[in-house]
């Protein structure tokens, strides 16, 4: 690990000021960042710890949306009565991230800011058409994910909460790597108030919508309709766990399973 200075922020304003002044990185649960720093893949001069900021925790229903504080852990989301009732697919997704030790520390805000190409939460945010709230603005899901580990966040911008509109029905199915539980491919299918949205994680450089499957499901919301869509393998990932062609095949298969699971 390279040398860094550690600061613990008491408020979001504190944290934003510290990030602006130092050019450092915000530290949430540390389940990705600490590991990356150990491998010297990340080298922040200053770490601003935001995990303890009380105002960033809590999960509540606000009208037709569920609002989740950025520092809510995956375990918090998985066990939340509000989430389980309004968007059970989201609670189930949180329950499937990593293992229990990771879920006790990792946060939704940290996961989204990191935007790992195989992370689960980005698929939920994109498919449900959620809104990412920061200390500066509200960012629509379609505008948030910009590239591999890249988001629309500015250097001193901090995610404060995520607002998920309650869908008519939704389900997330992933093919997990048996060791890490990261998605080899994960597909989140949602029937939202504004139509069918399908988001795919793990398959490409970053989470993206599968518009061909969305169009097929808009005509017929059935497992067969999703499965019939042929996804081109161009631009999909190839690694030791699976080829681009295999991932392309998985996208349709998992989408069809998600449709079945959504009921």
């Amino acid at each position: 690990m390279y040398v860094f200075e550690y600061q613990r922020a008491k408020s979001v304003a504190d944290a934003a000021a510290a990030l602006a002044k130092t050019g450092g990185k915000a530290l949430a649960g540390g389940q990705s960042l600490v590991g990356a720093m150990k491998l010297r893949l990340a080298n922040p001069g200053t770490l601003v710890d935001i995990a303890g900021i009380a105002g960033l925790k809590g999960i509540k229903q606000e009208g037709a949306a569920v609002v989740i504080g950025a520092m809510s852990t995956h375990a918090d989301v998985a066990s939340s009565a509000v989430v389980k009732k309004a968007i059970p697919a989201l609670a189930a997704l949180a329950e499937g991230i990593g293992d229990r030790q990771v879920r006790n520390r990792g946060t939704i805000g940290g996961s989204l800011a990191n935007n790992d190409p195989a992370a689960d939460y980005p698929a939920a945010v994109l498919a449900l058409g959620a809104t990412v709230q920061t200390n500066k603005r509200k960012i629509a899901a379609d505008e948030f994910f910009k590239g591999m580990y890249e988001t629309a966040l500015g250097a001193d911008e901090i995610i404060t909460a995520v607002s998920f509109p309650v869908p008519k029905k939704a389900a997330y199915v992933k093919f997990p790597n048996p060791a890490s539980r990261f998605a080899l491919v994960g597909v989140f299918v949602a029937q939202t108030q504004s139509g069918v949205r399908v988001a795919v994680t793990g398959a490409a450089a970053h989470v993206h919508r599968a518009t061909a499957i969305e169009n097929a499901l808009a005509k017929s919301f059935t497992a067969d309709a999703a499965k019939a869509v042929k996804i081109p393998a161009d631009h999909l990932n190839t690694d030791l766990h699976g080829s681009a062609e295999y991932r392309a095949h998985l996208v349709s298969v998992l989408a069809s399973r998600a449709v079945t699971a959504a009921g």
Binding site: Y6, L27, G30, R100, Q101, N104, R105
Partner: peptide, 19 residues
């Protein structure tokens, strides 16, 4: 390296002591 922090299990290798 599993330990409990405030009663919840965590991997102590993925946490900094100062946190």
């Amino acid at each position: 390296c599993t330990v409990h922090v405030n009663g919840r299990r965590v991997n102590s290798c993925l946490s900094l002591a100062v946190m």
